[in-house]
Amino acid sequence: MFPENTKFLVVDDFATMRKIVKKVLTQLGYKNIEEADDGNTAWPMIKDAHSNGNPYDIIISDWNMPGMTGVDLLKNVRGDANLKEMPFVMVTAESEQKNIVEAVKAGVSDYIVKPFNANTLKTKLEALYSKHNGQAA
């Protein structure tokens, strides 16, 4: 599993969902969690964190948000040579096949459909860790 000092950015236009994701991450032992309310807020945070030498390790983002959507944020991240390997998990109510295909084509690391429970997020993070580290969780 990712170490306890892993730095997360949680992006969602609803504070309730940011609170739920943050609570689950905290229960899993993570303390370094920042929030943004849409892609327009998140994108400069991601770039600045990288420039300052303290980049985010994982982005967890909603899809459907005013301003910049989650999938556009994902495309920005994958289009930046310095950020393109960053794990990016989509947590969204958009579960149509066409949405999942679009996210996969854009390079999403994993996809969680709302409503979800704490165990789902934990399992997805374990799988993501294995994928990025080439070992069992």
Partner: peptide, 12 residues
């Protein structure tokens, strides 16, 4: 805010 998120999930 919570009602907004519930509505979002139900509509989704």
């Amino acid at each position: 805010d919570a009602v907004g998120e519930l509505t979002n999930q139900i509509y989704g």
